[in-house]
C-alpha cells in the first residue's frame, strides 16, 4: 500500500523581505525506491517552485545535500522514505549560514578551515617532472585515503554539541583533515607545528567526546579513533619534554 507522506519543511528566504522563518507542510504519495532527492524535486516541480535545497551528485558522494532529517543531520539523497515514518521533518543544517529553506553555505566555512589549518602538503621539495614518483608504502596510502574520504558534508559539525555551543571549535572534520596530513610522509610539518594548529581548546582539547560526529558521518569515517589518537598525540607532545624517559610517548596515528 502506498503511503501518503507528510513533510514539514523549514521555510525562510532571507532575500525576500516578506518571508519569515516558519514550517510548511506538504503531502506527497510515496513511490517505490523513493529517496528524499526524488521527494524534494517533485515538491519543487509540482507544488512549490520556490523551494530551495541543494543536490549535486545525488549519489551520496559529494556531500552537497546534508540537512537535518527528523532531527539528525544526514545526506538527503541517500535517505530512503521507506526507512522513515509517515511524517518527516526537514531542517537546514545548523551552524552554517542559511542561504534559504534547506540550503546552507558550507563552502565559506570549509574554505576558512583550509586556510586556518593550511590544508595542503607542506614540503620544501620541488617537483621534478623528469623523475619517477617517490615511493610510498601501499598501506600508508590506504591509511591516508581512509581519512581523505571525508566529503565535507558538515554533518559532523552540525551534530556536535561542542561546535554548537562554541563557534570557534574546529570540529571533527577539521581535526580529521589535520590527522590526514600528520599521516602523510609528504607533509614535512613538525609535531610542534601541528600542535600549534590544534593543541588548543578550539582544537582537539575542546572536543568533549560526544561522538555525535562518529554516529552521523555518512561516510563512516573513523572519527572516534582519529580524535582519540590526536588527543593522545597532542597531549604527549606537550609534556614529553618534562616526562621521565620511560613515560615519554610518541603516538603514531
Amino acid at each position: 500500500m502506498a503511503r501518503m507522506l507528510k513533510f514539514n519543511i523549514f521555510r525562510y528566504n532571507p532575500q525576500d523581505p516578506a518571508s519569515v522563518p516558519h514550517m510548511q507542510s506538504f503531502s506527497i504519495d510515496e513511490t517505490e525506491s523513493m529517496t528524499l532527492f526524488i521527494v524534494l524535486n517533485r515538491l519543487r516541480e509540482e507544488q512549490d517552485p520556490s523551494l530551495q535545497f541543494d543536490f549535486c551528485c545525488r549519489a551520496g558522494i559529494c556531500g552537497a545535500c546534508a540537512m537535518v532529517i527528523n532531527g539528525r543531520p544526514g545526506l538527503a539523497c541517500h535517505t530512503k522514505t521507506k526507512d522513515l515514518p509517515e511524517e518527516i521533518t526537514l531542517m537546514p543544517l545548523p551552524i552554517f549560514k542559511l542561504v534559504g529553506d534547506l540550503s546552507v553555505d558550507t563552502g565559506t566555512w570549509f574554505r576558512a578551515m583550509y586556510k586556518k589549518i593550511e590544508s595542503w602538503c607542506h614540503t620544501k621539495k620541488v617537483f621534478d617532472p623528469n623523475a619517477i614518483e617517490e615511493r610510498m608504502d601501499n598501506d600508508v596510502a590506504e591509511a591516508i585515503y581512509e581519512l581523505d574520504r571525508c566529503v565535507e558534508c558538515g554533518c559532523c559539525v552540525a551534530a556536535c554539541g561542542t561546535a554548537l555551543m562554541r563557534e570557534d571549535f574546529l570540529g571533527a572534520t577539521t581535526l580529521n583533515r589535520v590527522a590526514r596530513f600528520i599521516l602523510d610522509p609528504r607533509d614535512e610539518r613538525t609535531e610542534k607545528e601541528y600542535f600549534d594548529l590544534i593543541g588548543t581548546d578550539e582544537g582537539i582539547f575542546g572536543c568533549m567526546g560526544l561522538l555525535a560526529c562518529q554516529d552521523v558521518c555518512p561516510k563512516y569515517l573513523p572519527l572516534q579513533d582519529v580524535l582519540g589518537k590526536l588527543r593522545k598525540k597532542m597531549a604527549f607532545a606537550a609534556v614529553n619534554n618534562i616526562l621521565p624517559s620511560f613515560l615519554k610517548q610518541d603516538i603514531k596515528l
Binding site: W120, C121, K125, F127, P129, A131, I132, E133, E134, R135, M136, D137, N138, V140, A141, E142, I144, Y145, D148, D184, R186, D187
Partner: peptide, 18 residues
C-alpha cells in the same frame, strides 16, 4: 605520466605496488 606523478607529489594517496 608527468601529470600523474605531479598529483602524487601534491598529495594524492595513489594505490601503490605491493
Amino acid at each position: 605520466p608527468i601529470a600523474m606523478r605531479q598529483m602524487a607529489f601534491w598529495g594524492v594517496p595513489w594505490n601503490r605496488v605491493v
